[in-house]
Amino acid sequence: MNLRKNIGLRRKFGAIFLSLFSIAACAETSIAILDFELSDVTLAPGIPAEIARTASIKAMLENELKRAGYKIISVDLDTQHEANGGFGYLFDHGDIAAAFSKKAGADYVLVGKLHKPSFLFAYLMGHLINANNGKMVGSYTVETKGGDKKLTLKAVETFASKMDKDLDNIYTPPPPSKSVHTK
C-alpha cells in the first residue's frame, strides 16, 4: 500500500515538474516583431485607414503572443530604419533583421507586411527568422476579407497560431466568432 502511494506521488510530482518545466521553457522564447509594412497595390494606395490598420497589426500580434506566454522584445525603430534598405528589404533579407534582433536579446524575429491587392481582401504575410543563425523558421500568409478591425484581429489570431506551431505550440486562439471569416 505504501509503495503504491509512493509511486502515485512520484507520478504526480513528475507531472507537476514537467508542467513547470514546460511553462518555464516556453516563457523563455523571445520574439521581436518588426513594424508591418503596407504593400497596397490597389487603385487608391496608402489611404489613412489602411495605414492605421497596418500599424495596428504589430500590437495585436504582440498581445496574442504575450497571452500565450512568449516574451516580446522591443527593437528600436531607428535601428529598423537604419537597417532597412528600402521597401520590403528586411522582408527579403531576414538575416539582417536577425542580426539586430539578436543584439536586442530576441531568439526570433518576425518581419511582416500587409499585402493588399484588392479592396475586398488583403494578406498578412510574415517571415519568422531564427535570430541566432539568420535562417527562416517559417513563412506565413493569412487572408483577411475587408478592413474591419474584428476581421483583422481574427487574421492575426490565425497568424499567431501558425507561428506558434513552428515554435512552442502553446497558443490557443479565442473561439471563432460566427460572423468572422479568414483562411
Rank of each mutant, 00 (worst) to 15 (best):
Met1Ile: 00
Asn2Tyr: 01
Leu3His: 08
Lys5Thr: 14
Lys5Phe: 07
Lys5Cys: 01
Arg11Lys: 10
Phe13Trp: 08
Gly14Thr: 07
Gly14Leu: 12
Phe17Ile: 08
Leu18Asp: 10
Leu20Glu: 12
Leu20Ala: 09
Ser22Ala: 13
Ser22Phe: 04
Ile23Gln: 11
Ala24Val: 11
Ala24Tyr: 05
Ala27Met: 01
Glu28Gly: 13
Ala32Gln: 06
Ile33Phe: 02
Ile33Val: 12
Leu34Asn: 04
Leu38Arg: 04
Leu38Ala: 02
Ser39Glu: 10
Ala44Lys: 12
Gly46Leu: 03
Ile47Phe: 09
Pro48Phe: 12
Glu50Leu: 11
Arg53Thr: 13
Arg53Gly: 10
Leu61Cys: 04
Leu65Lys: 06
Leu65Ile: 05
Lys66Ile: 03
Tyr70Phe: 06
Tyr70Arg: 01
Tyr70Glu: 01
Ile73Val: 15
Leu77Ala: 11
Leu77Gln: 11
Asp78Asn: 14
Thr79Ser: 05
Gly85Thr: 08
Gly88Asn: 13
Tyr89Asp: 13
Tyr89Trp: 08
Phe91Arg: 04
His93Phe: 02
His93Trp: 02
Gly94Asn: 01
Asp95Val: 10
Ala97Phe: 06
Ala98Gln: 07
Lys103Leu: 15
Lys103Arg: 15
Lys103Phe: 07
Gly105His: 09
Val109Met: 01
Val111Met: 13
Lys113Ala: 00
Lys116Arg: 15
Lys116Cys: 09
Pro117Thr: 10
Phe119Gly: 13
Leu120Ser: 10
Phe121Asp: 10
Ala122Ser: 15
Leu124His: 07
Gly126Trp: 03
Asn132Thr: 00
Asn133Ser: 14
Gly138Ser: 15
Ser139Asp: 15
Ser139His: 13
Glu143Asp: 03
Asp148Val: 07
Lys149Asn: 07
Lys149Gln: 09
Leu153Gly: 03
Leu153Cys: 02
Val156Ser: 01
Val156Tyr: 00
Val156Met: 07
Thr158Ile: 03
Ser161Leu: 09
Lys162Trp: 04
Lys162Gly: 11
Lys162Ser: 14
Asp164Trp: 10
Asp168Tyr: 01
Asn169Lys: 15
Tyr171Thr: 05
Thr172Asn: 09
Pro173Asp: 12
Pro173Trp: 12
Pro176Leu: 04
Ser177Val: 07
Lys178Asn: 05
Ser179Asp: 13
Ser179His: 12
His181Asp: 15
Thr182Phe: 11
